[in-house]
Amino acid sequence: MTPFGAKLRALREAKGVTLTDLARALQVSPAYLSALEHGHRGRPSSGLIHQVNEYFGLIWDDAEEVARLARLSHPRVVVDTAGLSAEATALANRIAREIRRLPPETIAALEAVLDGAAAAEGQAARSRPQARSSSR
């Protein structure tokens, strides 16, 4: 399941809408919506995202969240490790092999590690002295 698929299913279930009824309203096939929900299809088009937001009456932050989840929802990810260390390439390959077996708690822990690393890098970048540009 993709992040967009999970959100779409949650929206449908919260409103009591069947897959068939939503498909009819969005003018797509129920099979397509099912494939989106189950992660068998890639990112939805911006037009479909707009239709989903309109159908469920989502605005502002909620609509942007649906669009953000759609951007994160490509089920076949390619990781380019060209130019990175051998360890980075080995890690990427190991994750690709083992991700199906990881329990949700482990995935959440890995995300927390990556979030912490990104936050630390952002903090380090903010504390570095800025290079001054001369206007001569």
Rank of each mutant, 00 (worst) to 15 (best):
L102V: 09
L26H: 05
L48W: 01
L114P: 07
A120I: 15
E98P: 05
R101K: 10
T89C: 09
L110A: 12
N93D: 14
N53M: 03
A67D: 11
Q27L: 14
A25F: 02
P75Y: 02
L26G: 00
V79I: 14
R41Q: 07
S46D: 13
Q123G: 06
H38A: 07
R24D: 12
D62K: 02
V79M: 14
E54G: 01
Q27T: 14
S73P: 00
L72P: 00
R24G: 07
V28T: 13
A86E: 13
H40E: 14
T89R: 07
V66Y: 02
A82C: 04
Q123D: 12
R24S: 10
A92F: 06
L110D: 12
E65R: 13
G83L: 05
G122W: 11
R128F: 06
G47M: 09
G42E: 02
R43Y: 00
Y55H: 03
S45Q: 06
G47V: 12
A117H: 15
R128Y: 04
V28K: 09
D62E: 13
A125Y: 05
I107N: 07
S45D: 06
Q51W: 00
L72F: 08
V79F: 09
H74I: 09
L26N: 02
V78Q: 05
V66G: 01
Q27A: 15
I99L: 05
D115F: 13
P103A: 10
A112C: 15
I95D: 09
A82S: 07
L58M: 01
L33Y: 04
E105N: 07
L26W: 00
V113P: 03
L114A: 15
V113Y: 09
R126W: 09
G57K: 01
E64R: 13
G83C: 05
V52H: 00
R68S: 10
